[in-house]
């Protein structure tokens, strides 16, 4: 997966000032991780190597579920919408 260009990362920070850097790092990590899993095999939890039981595995979000959540968290607030709230 192509890395984010510096100007793209800057634009995200500018347009979404409430986005936490650690959220953006995790988001990029998950996007990259998506491509390390064979898409024609059933998707596993993000940290499947550390999963200790099937029950625990079922309770963890999939990569796509966590990506959806992070995407909402990072990109839901724009400068204009945060200004409108004030």
């Amino acid at each position: 997966m192509q890395p984010l260009k510096p100007e793209e990362r800057d634009a995200i920070s500018k347009d979404h000032p409430l986005a936490a850097p650690e959220d953006l790092d995790r988001y990029e990590q998950l996007l990259s991780m998506r491509f390390t899993q064979d898409p024609d095999r059933p998707q596993t939890a993000p940290d499947s190597r550390q999963v200790k039981s099937a029950q625990e595995s079922q309770s963890r979000p999939t990569i796509e579920e966590e990506l959806q959540e992070l995407h909402s968290r990072i990109f839901r607030t724009t400068l204009s919408s945060s200004a409108a709230k004030k």
Binding site: Q2, E28, Q29, S32, M33, T36, D38
Partner: peptide, 29 residues
Amino acid sequence: ITPLHEFQHAISSYTNGSITDLYVDSSPA
């Protein structure tokens, strides 16, 4: 160098050695 970066992912293998992104805290490859 994006074409080469992606080529190296693509030529690697799910079962016989994968080449992963190094700009995130990746899983073993």
